[in-house]
């Protein structure tokens, strides 16, 4: 990935400028983690466990710190590596894509559709964002780009009705995967979250045979609020995976470490740009390397 200007440089300098592992070094390390958006609480718990290891294994060399830290992070993020793959087998499958405003839901749907189409799947999109200005047109342009059909109603219509229709269409056309866009909504808006609950019920009722995946899209630029987003969306819709977007910027997306630890939701895909190919499968090992600025 393109997660440049990582914290490696900083850690490299850090371990070189210390002769031994002391409190000062550990404090600087703490700072590096926090600036990657890992968050105070998660950083503290990582540091505690690091301190324990240093003590029990009698580690003296500052050089060793880097490896220890990587191991620690990989352990947290790799816990669910078995679940990192998109869950769309057996066909038919339905993917519901949710998240707060502007994080990259619609774009990610375009990218996922492109990826699945390359695997020769029959893909159908549902324009479930009937609220935002030109959201339907945006998804339709993605549909054209990728070459998949989009089921839509007019702006302002009931999103649940769109999803209902799209499910009927997916059945009729024997689509392998139906991917549903939804309007961006902040998790603290009760009525909008209830609307998601209604959509989930329709999926349950109308498409109970389908393999189900609910993806929460998170923007890597987001700070600690992402934890709250994940918590509340998980309660409302049974989130089964995360998509972390905008990792082509300078933000590290470290907040997913805390989410992994606290909420046990696997990251499945990452977005690294605005083009349809700019989607990668999440691999905890390389993500941690990228956090440290290594390709």
């Amino acid at each position: 990935s393109k997660t440049k200007q990582g914290i490696t440089g900083k850690i490299e300098n850090l371990v070189k400028s210390y002769q031994k592992i002391d409190e000062e070094l550990l404090e600087e390390l703490e700072e590096i983690l926090i600036t990657a958006d890992i968050g105070v609480q998660t950083t503290m718990s990582i540091m505690d466990s690091l301190r324990d290891k240093i003590k029990t294994d009698k580690i003296k060399e500052p050089e060793m710190i880097k490896e220890l830290l990587k191991e620690e992070l990989k352990e947290i993020l790799g816990k669910f590596s078995a679940d990192e793959k998109l869950n769309i087998e057996p066909s038919p499958a339905i993917i519901l894509v949710v998240g707060v405003n502007g994080v990259g839901k619609t774009t990610s749907i375009g990218k996922i559709a492109h990826k699945l189409k390359k695997q020769n799947k029959k893909v159908l999109l549902a324009a479930g964002d009937t609220f935002r200005a030109a959201a339907v047109e945006q998804l339709k342009i993605w549909g054209d780009r990728v070459g998949v059909e989009v089921i839509s109603h007019q702006e302002g219509s009931d999103p649940a009705a769109v999803i209902y229709d799209a499910i009927q269409a997916a059945k009729a056309r024997q689509a392998d995967v139906l991917i549903c866009d939804t309007a961006g909504r902040l998790h603290n808006k009760k009525n909008l979250m209830n609307e998601l609950g209604k959509i989930s019920k329709i999926v349950e009722r109308e498409y109970s045979t389908a393999t189900r995946e609910v993806l929460l899209v998170l923007d890597a630029t987001t700070g600690q609020n992402a934890i709250q987003q994940a918590k509340v969306f998980k309660e409302a819709t049974d989130i089964s995976g995360l998509v972390l977007t905008k990792l082509d910027g300078t933000a590290k997306g470290g907040v997913v470490v805390g989410i992994s630890q606290e909420l046990a939701i696997p990251v499945k895909l990452i977005g690294v740009g605005e083009k349809m190919q700019d989607l990668q499968e999440f691999d905890s090992q390389s993500f941690v390397n990228a956090l440290f600025g290594e390709e």
Binding site: A36, T221, T222, G223, T250, A251
Partner: peptide, 8 residues
Amino acid sequence: VDSMTGQD
């Protein structure tokens, strides 16, 4: 600027 932005 999105008010949810983190350290970046």
